[in-house]
Write a protein that binds this DNA or RNA. Structure first.
Lengths: 332, 332
DNA sequence: GTGAAAGCGCTAACAC
DNA sequence: GTGTTAGCGCTTTCAC
């Protein structure tokens, strides 16, 4: 197994340099020689040592992907998209899951991906100035998904516009008292997205009311609690806009338990178009999550192949998916 | 940024070898010297080059994780568990998502993780003999989750026992005609697990009937279809056991659409305890998925630190979680 | 088109 | 304890 270049060279009757050239497909090797080398390599079951190769070239053939969570639908979906394009391009993906704040701190303290990757991808994770600098100082391309950072390419959706569309839908259905389930303070790992959705909510809401703005930490349980809070209000909303489907799921559950019908009594609108939104008949704002990942992967490839534009920013479209959870406001 | 060991050595007034020792914390360096070196390194913002280090030592500090999917709850959850323990041990995780059959073939043809990792982890993916040999030939420890392979450590649950428990629950509720939603033929990437669950089903089912055995490809949509098939039967089952929660979700939906009540008309029992099982009030067999990942991670660590036992096999427990989707069989 | 030689940045013996 | 000397297995000028 630990064959080396020279073994192949010997077998093919050429020098190591030629083997190296032939195996990498660089020009400047006679076709006959190349075939001979390839045959020899195949016979020996030889494959280049990525490590040695990296040391010599400075390239690792690997990209680092930093995520706050791997086991949430949104993230795993993006990772899947990213992985697909990187794999097809022959790159490997080094995954760094930050975990909690402590994990995040440890990650940036040690920066384990330093010198290990050719590029880094940050998924839905707003960086502090210091963190951004560290990543930029790596000297490798940086691309982000769902956030924008100076010096980095970004891929995302227009959160504000999407949320406006969602809210307008509710308003057109005649809803005036609309609750919001989102996140004001940074959640453990600090999203920025919820703030943009909140802003849109405030903008469109016919009767904005601070009491209608709840937070759900982007979890089902959080959504349940938020909905409970809304139901406890003296004059409760007739519709709820949740900044994520998972929170909307939680809201649905609280409503069901409270004996309220969706959408007859309360309309619920989510955001994401989670795999199970369809199952739960949740109306929602669909965003092409896997595509976000693929686009990000392509950004990396572009940068790696030397693209030199200032800073690219791709916005992919979203659309409303109307299912059974939204209906005209109860007339009462 | 591209500082080298010698720069630190110069600054600290020692040799490169000493810096190397000090930085890695190996014994045999005077405490004073070590402090001085650490200070110098910090001052320069120096960090060892993993590539060079790997070339010299033969160790990469990386483990390869091979999965059939990343964006399914079960897998993303395991990955999360694995990642946590590897990260805490200072190891990086190289993720390989096989995608479809073609992707799988390409992966094993190129074996991109060859010489890149110190160990490999295979998640819920039964290997062909050839594939197993290839992985074993890497010469690195191999551990599997959810499958068992000769030559590899494994971590998993007792699928058969768990399924038996599940089925018995249904039988005790008085159900006699029980449908099964699983998978007989290998799904795209071939699970082995469903077969064991199917065997348990057959064993316990009071009135086994080939027509009651359906397949759902482990997806919500597949579960929907399978349930539809079962409903189309002349004498339909009063309970359904699905080999995964996602398929159970699909079954629930088909039942709802058909105007049947769960659990009054039909009981549904899942498997996994998916994040959303609680939301959907699905009774299910809970398996500690994240723990599976953690255990697997620990297996890797043990092997990496030289453990030499023949072949370890870890079985973690499961338990029935009774929620609202199972009830006594309709007396009719 | 091909080969020789000099690294890439570390670690591991082996001396001292 | 610490320094010296060889490599680790490739790639890359630079000759030929």
């Amino acid at each position: 197994m630990p064959e080396k270049l020279d073994d192949v060279a010997r077998l093919a009757g050429v020098s190591a340099a030629t083997v190296s050239r032939a195996l990498r497909g660089v020009p400047g090797v006679a076709e006959r020689t190349r075939t001979r080398v390839l045959a020899a390599a195949a016979e020996l079951g030889y494959a280049i040592s990525p490590t040695a190769s990296s040391l010599a070239t400075g390239r690792t053939g690997t990209v680092g992907v930093i995520v706050p969570y791997v086991d949430r639908w949104y993230f795993s979906r993006i990772i899947s998209g990213v992985e697909r394009v990187l794999r097809e391009a022959g790159l490997s993906l080094l995954l760094y899951n930050l975990g909690d704040d402590a994990g995040r701190a440890r990650f940036f303290a040690g920066l384990p991906l330093r010198r290990r990757v050719d590029a880094v991808l940050v998924l839905a994770l707003p960086l502090s100035d210091a963190e951004r600098e560290q990543l930029l100082n790596l000297g490798t391309p940086l691309v982000t998904v769902g956030t924008e950072e100076p010096g980095a390419d970004s891929v995302g959706i227009d959160d504000h516009a999407a949320a406006v569309t969602a809210m307008r839908h509710l308003v057109q259905l005649g809803h005036r008292r609309i609750g919001f389930v989102g996140e004001d303070a940074p959640v453990p790992l600090g999203f920025t997205t919820p703030l943009r959705r909140l802003a849109a909510y405030r903008e469109v809401c016919p009767e904005p009311d601070p009491a209608f703005e709840t937070t759900g930490r982007f979890t089902v349980a959080g959504g349940e609690r938020a909905m409970a809070t809304l139901l406890g209000l003296p004059h409760r909303p007739t519709a709820v806009f949740a900044a994520s489907d998972e929170m909307a799921f939680g809201a649905l559950r609280t409503l069901r338990r409270a004996g309220l019908r969706v959408p007859e009594d309360v309309s619920v609108l989510g955001f994401d178009d989670h795999d199970l939104a369809d199952l739960l008949e949740l109306s929602t704002v669909a965003q092409p999550v896997a595509e976000l990942g693929e686009r990000a992967g392509h950004r990396v490839l572009a940068r790696l192949s030397g693209e030199k534009v200032a800073q690219s920013r791709t916005i992919v479209g979203t659309h409303l998916v109307l299912r059974g959870s939204t209906a005209p406001a109860p007339t009462r």
